[in-house]
Nucleic acid binder design. Structure first.
Lengths: 135, 135
DNA sequence: TCCTTTACTTTTGAATTGCAAGTAAAATCA
DNA sequence: TGATTTTACTTGCAATTCAAAAGTAAAGGA
């Protein structure tokens, strides 16, 4: 992580925030999977171990990508939500989806999703964004 | 790396190819920095160590992202070039540049580059692409 | 009061990384 | 032609990170 060095390449900066496999998968589950709680992220199909999940959540929060809040009035439960900074990543993530769907001969990307993205990528991003606009 | 499992999420597939910091920095230097030789990549500002560089080049080649060819007639020198698959990543990388330039208060992204990208991102990608169309 | 849920932390061995040095073959130089 | 340099790596080793499994602590619910 080069956050304070003389290295100010925008690609490098982006990688410092989401250049780790698990960080992006957490964001994916948050943005597209409707996941908001620790145990929901822990149940990702890729099988993240809980120590890594905890460290990545902390890292994402430190990088201003997600916020951690109490779930409803007093309780020992938390909600993780994307910040605007994370939502601004949607165009990049959508390009990732398109690239993966295009180049993986066995892609499992739902055709209706890839079709919607192809037709109107910005509109697709806006739709996802709206789901978090109230928070 | 999940290349053969039941996990066929397009984001996950993309991460299997470039979800590592160094892979993407090599691609960056190749696409935008005009680098083609081993020792040029080894001299990246981020300081990749040579064992990691060698393993990443091998990995990128195995993933169909780059090709390794002999440099000119007989010689012990190689040229690394992006494949079409890698060039198809340009839209994603361009989104990374925009995100990084936008969110890093101390970004070193050249204003003329970010301006050109903002004005016509697809055109910018096409310009980069053309440089490799002859190979 | 005991059990469960939730969000972690800890432990341990394995894998990966970073750093430095070494190597091998071809090309260039003297 | 022999010596040096260039190029593309490999090797060794300590340190960090990771995965897997188990443990923990506080709050809620039965």
């Amino acid at each position: 992580m080069n956050t304070d060095t003389l290295d100010r390449c925008p690609i490098s900066y982006t990688l410092d925030h989401v250049g780790d496999r698990w960080s992006l998968l957490i964001l994916r589950d948050m943005l597209f999977g409707g996941k908001r709680h620790y145990d929901e992220f822990a149940a990702s199909p890729e099988g993240i171990s809980t120590n890594i999940l905890a460290s990545r959540l902390k890292q994402l929060e430190a990088g201003g990508m997600i916020s951690k809040r109490q779930y409803q009035e007093n309780r020992r439960r938390y909600v993780y939500l994307p910040t605007d900074k994370a939502l601004d990543l949607l165009p990049m993530i959508i390009e990732m989806i398109q690239w993966g769907a295009r180049h993986d001969p066995h892609t499992g990307a739902p055709p209706e999703v890839t079709a919607a993205i192809r037709k109107d990528p910005a509109g697709f991003a806006a739709t996802v964004r709206e789901k978090f606009s109230s928070q």
